Amino acid sequence: MKQGFLSILPLAAGAALYGFAFGVLAAQIGFPWWGVALMSGLVHAGSSQIVAVEQFGSHGFVLGAVLAGAALNLRYLGIIASLSEVLRDVPMRLRLLAIHITGDENWALTMARRARDPDIGAAFLIGSGLTMISVWVISTTAGALIGGAIPDLEGYGLGFAFTAAFIAMARAMWRGRQVILPWAITFAATLALVRAGMGPAFAIVLGSLAGVAIATLDRSRRRQDIA
């Protein structure tokens, strides 16, 4: 667990930046600091929280914000499914804890490390998850507490923090040329849907599903070639 707790620190630093930016954004829209802290601890899904708050700030509809966040969080169905082997021998209470604190960053790091070392498992996932949720709650709450004093996030360079964190995660998940096609399909489909007028949250979900479908077909083809 200690290994996971420490190994995730570089990614946690990036998460702290966009967590702070999220807290500022939420406060400027009108969310109380304690509401931001509660949301970060209970929802604990950075990208969907940001999308939900932006939707609420743009349109003022709670239901629309919830649906946008939920749509983006559909990817966690695949993430949790991919952890079946990692959590297979873990007691239920720890399994539920692991599922709650699993985010994009610690999942990506755990799977990347596990690909090189099969001994990496639930302890690493939980340790890295505890680091991430602690940093996320603290940074978002801090941003919300002083949000009114920061008028322009872009002026401080914080607008790129969210993108930078996902670039780091993508690099950790790179498996070589065999993933180029699914990644390209995901990117192209998402971009096309956004340009067609679809909301970013739903475009990401559908684009990801397209990429997963291509990856599944490609994996089946390779198995048939081997057989």
Rank of each mutant, 00 (worst) to 15 (best):
residue 96 L to Y: 13
residue 26 A to W: 08
residue 4 G to T: 09
residue 110 T to G: 05
residue 67 L to T: 06
residue 61 F to K: 09
residue 15 A to F: 12
residue 7 S to R: 13
residue 87 L to K: 08
residue 27 A to Y: 05
residue 22 F to W: 09
residue 56 F to V: 12
residue 80 I to G: 14
residue 104 D to R: 08
residue 56 F to P: 00
residue 2 K to N: 14
residue 55 Q to I: 11
residue 42 L to Q: 05
residue 55 Q to D: 09
residue 9 L to P: 00
residue 27 A to R: 11
residue 104 D to A: 11
residue 10 P to H: 10
residue 34 W to P: 00
residue 71 A to N: 00
residue 77 L to Q: 04
residue 97 L to T: 11
residue 69 G to D: 10
residue 108 A to C: 10
residue 93 R to N: 11
residue 14 G to C: 12
residue 15 A to W: 07
residue 49 Q to D: 10
residue 85 E to C: 01
residue 68 A to L: 06
residue 4 G to C: 03
residue 39 M to Y: 08
residue 44 H to L: 13
residue 75 R to H: 06
residue 22 F to H: 07
residue 4 G to E: 01
residue 57 G to K: 08
residue 44 H to V: 01
residue 91 P to L: 12
residue 29 I to W: 12
residue 84 S to P: 07
residue 5 F to Y: 09
residue 66 V to T: 13
residue 49 Q to R: 03
residue 94 L to M: 14
residue 17 L to F: 14
residue 11 L to D: 00
residue 20 F to R: 03
residue 58 S to Y: 03
residue 58 S to L: 15
residue 22 F to Q: 04
residue 60 G to R: 02
residue 8 I to Y: 05
residue 49 Q to K: 01
residue 87 L to S: 09
residue 43 V to Y: 08
residue 7 S to D: 15
residue 17 L to Y: 00
residue 56 F to Q: 09
residue 86 V to T: 15
residue 13 A to V: 15
residue 108 A to P: 10
residue 6 L to C: 08
residue 12 A to D: 10
residue 13 A to S: 09
residue 12 A to W: 12
residue 72 L to R: 02
residue 30 G to F: 12
residue 51 V to D: 11
residue 6 L to H: 07
residue 54 E to T: 09
residue 83 L to G: 08
residue 92 M to D: 03
residue 39 M to F: 13
residue 79 I to P: 03
residue 58 S to A: 15
residue 37 A to R: 08
residue 49 Q to S: 07
residue 89 D to H: 14
residue 16 A to V: 10
residue 78 G to N: 05
residue 3 Q to Y: 06
residue 101 I to G: 05
residue 106 N to F: 11
residue 18 Y to H: 11
residue 46 G to P: 03
residue 7 S to W: 09
residue 67 L to R: 02
residue 23 G to Y: 06
residue 74 L to C: 03
residue 99 I to A: 15
residue 59 H to C: 05
residue 40 S to R: 02
residue 81 A to W: 07
residue 56 F to E: 04
residue 104 D to K: 03
residue 71 A to H: 01
residue 74 L to M: 12
residue 83 L to P: 04
